[in-house]
């Protein structure tokens, strides 16, 4: 059986930083053989998650895929979900949206850089840090426990919890 996973990421196509991180981590820790197609839809800002361009992007990938099943995975930074009612309310909104559309939701508390690099990065430096992450193969040193979390209020991500539903992990020491 062949599947397609569509990742909807916050970044835009030009910066592409989220996909640099996600793609390299997925390839490092999961078996990606010819039965798995990874596709990416760029939201170009988290608030655009249900805009026509995003919905059409998902629809296009779904229609094009000639394999068996397509699954959609939305990826969001939680931002300061503990202290910011606005961030919390946004997360609840996207959670509900994903539930309604049978999409998966991957969250990064507080953001993808905090989880994978261990520190926050300014917007202007996001692309540079993402390129370095791939170039230096920093994904090799990823603390897997950080991306197997279930509680979105603490630092970390549920990335592997979601990926485990569809993909098989490699034996990476």
């Amino acid at each position: 059986m062949s599947i397609q996973l569509i990742f909807c990421v916050e970044t835009n196509k030009k910066t592409n930083s989220d996909w640099y991180y996600l793609s390299s981590v997925i390839h490092q820790f999961y078996r990606i053989d010819s039965s798995v197609k990874l596709s990416v839809v760029y939201m170009d800002g988290k608030n655009k998650y249900k805009q026509k361009s995003v919905i059409n992007g998902i629809k296009e990938f779904r229609n094009m895929f000639t394999g068996d099943n397509t699954y959609v995975i939305y990826c969001f930074d939680t931002d300061d979900i503990v202290n910011s009612p606005k961030a919390l309310s946004f997360m609840k909104e996207v959670e509900e949206y994903c539930l309604r559309n049978v999409f998966d939701l991957v969250w990064f508390n507080r953001d993808i850089e905090n989880v994978l690099l261990g520190k926050g990065v300014s917007n202007s430096e996001k692309a540079t840090y993402a390129i370095d992450y791939v170039r230096k193969k920093s994904y090799v040193h990823l603390n897997v426990k950080m991306v197997e979390k279930e509680n979105r209020y603490i630092e970390g991500s549920n990335l592997f919890k979601v990926l485990d539903k569809y993909l098989t992990r490699k034996d990476v020491q």
């Binding site: 592409n16 793609s23 390839h27 039965s35 197609k37 990874l38 094009m64 170039r135």
Partner: peptide, 18 residues
């Protein structure tokens, strides 16, 4: 675009980095 079953081309330009 890698949409043919079993030919996914999960390859990015950044796959060559480093």
């Amino acid at each position: 675009k890698g949409m043919i079953e079993k030919s996914p081309f999960n390859l990015e330009s950044f796959s060559f980095l480093g």
